[in-house]
């Protein structure tokens, strides 16, 4: 994935101010940033959900905005804050995604069942997705993103609201995906997960990319959290304020 000078305004507010980023094939890339840093906006522009004011996005070498069909064919997306077609059951939703991707029915059936079993969602479960718990929704979303065996996965906050057991499962699946030659880009504000999983990291704040590179380059000999707080310019509580607590 490669982004060149992406810019996005909302009304008068500058949400993303010229982000350029090279994600090497086969890397596990973590996009870090505080709330409101522009992570979701950047990723939405990268996958073709939000038209950038300026700049280009290439997925596996294809321009998302010039040739969307080809660029999206080998891409799996898990957007954040976006609903699924949640009046379908889990199996129905997976079948829907598979057929929309132009897969044949036999492959869809076989892969959907396998994904539902591995993610512990139950291949015969007839609960509507709208009634799933937050963690289950993330898992079914991930299953939808993986169904057509993409080469690039773009995940927005995949670990938000997920319990530790499911998180471990998702981590495991993603690591296997990268080991098999796939590329993962995901956003998060949980340092531990990023430090454990990623080989590349980028830190965003206020719509600007502050630092990026391999994990070792970015953090040096400090902890990732220290680097993050320093780069973003957060403050550390001193003790004089909130004394009444």
């Amino acid at each position: 994935m490669s982004l060149h000078g992406l810019v996005k305004h909302f009304d008068t507010k500058l949400a993303v101010a010229g982000v350029s980023l090279e994600v090497p094939a086969g890397s596990f890339y973590g996009l870090l940033g505080p709330n409101g840093a522009g992570k979701t906006t950047t990723l939405s522009m990268a996958v073709g959900l939000l038209r950038p004011d300026q700049g280009h996005a290439f997925l596996l070498g294809y321009d998302v905005w010039a040739d969307p069909a080809t660029a999206k064919a080998r891409l799996g997306v898990l957007p954040d804050g976006v609903r699924l077609f949640d009046r379908l059951t889990g199996p129905e939703l997976l079948a829907y995604h598979g057929l929309l991707r132009g897969m044949d029915a036999a492959t869809v059936n076989q892969r959907a069942r396998e994904l539902l079993e591995v993610l512990e969602l139950g291949s015969g479960n007839r609960t509507l997705v709208v009634d799933y718990s937050a963690g289950m929704k993330k898992k079914i979303g991930l299953a939808c993103a993986l169904l057509h065996a993409p080469r690039l996965l773009v995940l927005d906050e995949p670990f938000e609201a997920v319990d530790p057991v499911s998180a471990a499962l998702i981590r495991d699946i993603l690591q296997r995906f990268v080991a098999g030659g796939g590329t993962v880009v995901f956003s998060s504000h949980v340092m531990e997960v990023v430090e454990r999983l990623c080989d590349h990291v980028a830190i965003m704040s206020s719509g600007v990319l502050r630092m990026h590179g391999t994990l070792a380059q970015v953090k040096g000999d400090r902890s990732l959290e220290e680097v993050f707080v320093q780069v973003v310019g957060g403050r550390v509580a001193t003790g004089s304020e909130l004394a009444w607590l």
Binding site: E92, A95, L99, D104, V108, R113, G124, N125, R126
Partner: peptide, 24 residues
């Protein structure tokens, strides 16, 4: 509802719907 063993595609599609993008 109880679990089902029918394959996912059959659960989504109606019987005579084509097994294509349009059908889905």
């Amino acid at each position: 509802t109880a679990d089902t063993t029918r394959p996912p595609v059959d659960l989504l599609l109606f019987r005579r719907a084509p097994r294509t993008r349009f059908g889905a």
